[in-house]
Design a protein around this nucleic acid. Structure first.
Lengths: 253, 253
DNA sequence: CGTAACTTTGATCTCGATCAAGGCTTGTGG
DNA sequence: CCACAAGCCTTGATCGAGATCAAAGTTACG
């Protein structure tokens, strides 16, 4: 698929290396991109896609690497082509809030400000396309559909953020975990089967505004209540989705 | 200023009446609009502004009226021309989370979905311009700058939402109230003077994910610590902004 | 003035945090 | 193949920030 994965399989478990610099692609590159259909790139026609390919720089990020540092100059946009990423903000004493998890097809870096509003860390091996903001701006001038698509993207994220604010401000621990699991099921291929949770308890806690212990206890409670079954290797299956929906919606227990 | 304020001063405290239907404006209306400069409307030139005026419907909303109902069909966009609005989501048992406060110049209703993601209630007498989504869509086709401006608007809201997620997920009550007060100071005319807080303790609580009592106690504590001075009629003055900033940023006390 | 809504303050309770062991899993090296 | 180490995850005991319950005190408005 890609000719640039020379060190990809060597030692994924060691988050030591620098981000690979990547290279501008051949004009035909985006044309054959497998995830174009699900990403913002889909708004640019085959005829014009070479323009995008010129601007895109493919990059490989190893697990655990922070490739966007909160507060640094926002020079690029990113489009994830494979892997999982967590987006977060932190307080000076180390408290962290994860704003969301991004996966294949997600677009990162929307902000008017010249600084990134959040950090981004690879949860596994991540491949992404990088676009400089300046060049992206030119593309937006030439392709209004791109701007429209980004507006749609931003609007959706805004709705998600508002749901998360309701969760963080007003839901109980059980309601939070139930909401989280159901969200995961929603974008799973087969929600009736074991669904992977590619994040640690610590990540879930930082996403839900809880502690590791509370997340763990709540999951154990859900298993005891036969709402879910916890599989091996970070997977979960929902066994009573109706009851879980009721719980997540915050209806009187 | 407006000829449509016949019942404006009659009984603002009674949130009983229906929203006034309003009327399409004369072509020259937007041209003289005092808040155009601070709103999305500013991206449309004087030459073309008649197009916008045709589409705009001026509406008056009395205090306490909910003019956007969460979950109902999203038929319109709104632009606030005066007054204060709270945006909120609610759980079935009545728990509420206020997503934000909107005032003069703010644009409401961005969402790809066909339903409003949140409700909106007038906190005082509110005047707003209503645009049907369908007509707005036409305008966006004709004026790409409008779309660009909405993207900027959405991006800014996204950044604000992310800050609020950090606040709701990880900040203490004192840090939340400090952050809130400083945000209020930021868009005040003169932050060194008494700044109005046009919302009740209950609204602050629902915005900050706290209870009325905790908000009240925290404000009392801040007054006792000489961080703020609480004026009469919902006003506050910050007397120790450095210490308040430190507190809001979440640095070790 | 009187009343209804909002705010403050106090007493007590509780959910989730914190502190503290253990138990699993995974990966490495003998 | 097993021993060991280093992370995770789970479970238990206790604590505490903020919620809840309760009662005055203020404000605003008719």
């Amino acid at each position: 698929m890609s000719d640039q994965t020379t060190c990809l399989h060597q030692r994924e478990s060691r988050p030591r290396r620098l981000i690979l610099a990547g290279a501008h692609r051949q004009p035909g590159y985006c044309l054959t991109c497998g995830i174009r259909a699900q990403s913002v790139c889909s708004v640019i026609d085959d005829d014009d896609i070479a323009r995008l390919a010129e601007v895109a720089v493919e990059t490989l990020v190893l697990p655990g690497r922070t490739f966007i540092e909160e507060g640094t100059a926002a020079t690029d946009f990113y489009n994830i082509t494979s892997g999982n990423v967590k987006l977060f903000k932190a307080l000076p004493d180390g408290r962290r809030q994860i704003m969301g998890f991004a996966t294949t097809g997600h677009f990162l870096g929307l902000a008017v400000s010249d600084q990134y509003a959040f950090g981004a860390e690879a949860m596994d091996t991540v491949r992404l396309c990088r676009f400089s903001r300046a060049r992206m701006r030119q593309l937006m001038d030439d392709f209004p559909r791109l701007e429209r698509r980004l507006l749609a993207e931003a609007s959706n994220e805004l709705v998600a953020a508002q749901n998360q604010m309701l969760l963080l401000g007003r839901k109980t621990a059980r309601e939070r975990v139930a909401s989280f699991l159901l969200d995961r099921m929603r974008d799973a291929t087969d929600p009736s089967q074991d669904v992977p949770l590619p994040m640690t308890r610590s990540d879930m806690a930082d996403y839900l505004g809880l502690t590791i212990e509370t997340v763990s206890r709540t999951l154990s409670w859900m298993r005891a209540e036969r709402l879910i079954a916890i599989g091996r290797g970070h997977t979960v299956r929902v066994t009573a989705s109706e009851r879980l929906e009721t719980l997540a919606a915050g209806e009187a227990a």
